[in-house]
Amino acid sequence: MKHLKIDNLHVSIGDREILRGLSLDLPTGQVHAIMGPNGSGKSTLAKVIAGHPDYTVTSGDILFDGESILAMEPDARARKGIFLAFQYPSEIPGVTIANFLRAALQARLPDGEELEATEYYAKLYEKMDLLEMPRTFTSRAVNEGFSGGEKKRCEILQMAMLRPTFALLDETDSGLDIDALKIVSHGVNSLRGPETGMLVITHYQRLLNYIVPDYVHVMVNGRIVESGTKELALKLEAEGYDWATEPEAEAVGA
């Protein structure tokens, strides 16, 4: 079992502090959900773990199986096994999904070793079938002209191909209709297992009906204010976040 450990993390963008002493322990084999109101810092957390250059870690640490990854470039973190399914994935004009994923997998191989093309395509088609994506998808440029649902499916396809140790899913449910949500959730669930830890970031409880988490954390103002089992998500659904944003609630979780 491996651990992704966030230890009393403080993060700023410019002069503004967004994460204010956040701690979290995500072991492989578990799915943790992070819920919280808009602006609580959920997406920042995902981007900071992935190494986004806009954010500054002012104190605290991020440990991948005991080793700090703060000094690592985003690509080194990715190759180590951290995957971020983006809320707003970038378009890469002219680069097909097949070529992009191939380059990403090739980047994980030792120098001089070539990716085996037949195996690669067999795997790619298998994962596309799982996500109910037509074969023609492979020759489309990454995210270019994609619908919201296509973008999210494409993110999960990449996750399925890259087999990360820790996957961060940032608002993967946003912009999805119920059918797309079911397909995407099915894809995510198929990747659950003892080798993978997942952090599912969402504003709504709806996603958690399909991707059932082992633990739920409530995030407010850059901190986790309450942690519990999946029932906590139901409580949030019923009562909203107001109870959590009240000052006395802070003491409970932190």
Binding site: G51, H52, P53, D75, S90, I92, A103, R108
Partner: peptide
């Protein structure tokens, strides 16, 4: 950043773009 997050170095990402 998106491409780096998939494991490509900055130079590889630039080149692919």
């Amino acid at each position: 950043f998106y491409m780096q997050q998939r494991g490509l170095t900055e130079a590889q990402a630039m080149s692919l773009s």
